[in-house]
Design a protein around this nucleic acid. Sequence first.
DNA 1: GACACTATAAGAGCATGTCTGATACAGGAT
DNA 2: ATCCTGTATCAGACATGCTCTTATAGTGTC
Lengths: 123, 123
Amino acid sequence: MHTLDLVDCPCTGGTLDRLIQPAILLVLEEGPLHGYRIAERIAKIPGFAGQKPDVSGVYRFLKSMERKGLLNGSWNVSESGPARKSYQITPGGRQCLAEWTKTLEEYRKSITALLRAARSTMR
Amino acid sequence: MHTLDLVDCPCTGGTLDRLIQPAILLVLEEGPLHGYRIAERIAKIPGFAGQKPDVSGVYRFLKSMERKGLLNGSWNVSESGPARKSYQITPGGRQCLAEWTKTLEEYRKSITALLRAARSTMR
DNA sequence: GACACTATAAGAGCATGTCTGATACAGGAT
DNA sequence: ATCCTGTATCAGACATGCTCTTATAGTGTC
C-alpha cells in the first residue's frame, strides 16, 4: 500500500495564517517599532512557536496599514546602521484591533465547532 | 471627529475562512453527497451561523480534492432533475481529515494566545 | 575580501474567497 | 406560454494574503 503524500496539502497548515495583521497591531500597542523588530516580537508571542513571520509580508502589511490610517510611519535616520521606518499605532488602529478581537473570538468558535464535530464523527 | 471606515478592513473577518476543505471532508465522512447538498450541510455545522459557503468555491475544491485522491466522484444520471456528481471520501481523505484536526488544534492555540495577549495589553 | 546578520522593499507565483454569468431542470404564479 | 424562484454544476475574473526570490545597503567578524 502506498501512503498519500500530504506534504503540500493544506491540511498540514501551510496556508492557514491570516493572523499577521492583528499581531502587528498588538505588538505596536506596546510601543512604536520598526519592521524587522516587529517580526521578531511576533515570533515571541506564545502560540507562534518562535517562528518569525516572513518579513517581506510584514513590510507589505505595514505599508497598506499606514495607507489605511491604522499606523503612522516615520523615518529614523539614525547615526549608525541603515535607516529604519518606525511605526506607531493610531486611534483607528486601536479601533481595528478591538474589532479583530471580536472577529477572532467568532472564528475560534467556528474552529471549535468543527473540531467537536470531527471528533464525534471520526469514531 | 471622523470615524474610520472599517467595513472593508480584514478585522471584520471577511478574509478569515479557510475552513471549507476540512468541512467538506467532515461532511463526506458521514456519507457520500453531491456539491450543493455539501454546501447546505456545512451551513448546518454549529459555528457557521447557518451560512452556506459560496457553492462556486465548493465545486472548485471538490474537483481539486478529487485530483489529489482525497475524494472519489461519480455521476448520478438520475431519472428526474439534472445530473449530480456524488463524492465519497477515500482512505487518503480520512488521513487528511485527521491531519486537519491536528492543524486546527494548533491554529486555535495561536488564536487563543493572540486573544490573551490582546486582552492583557489593551487595558 | 568573504560571510553573516540586520533592514527595507519590489516582484512573481500560489491558494483561497467572492462575484458574475452560463447552462439546465422543476414547480408555481401571472 | 412566460416569468420567477429554487435546485444544480461549473468557468472566468478579480482581490486578498502568504511565500519565495531578488535587490539594495550598512555593520561586524573572521
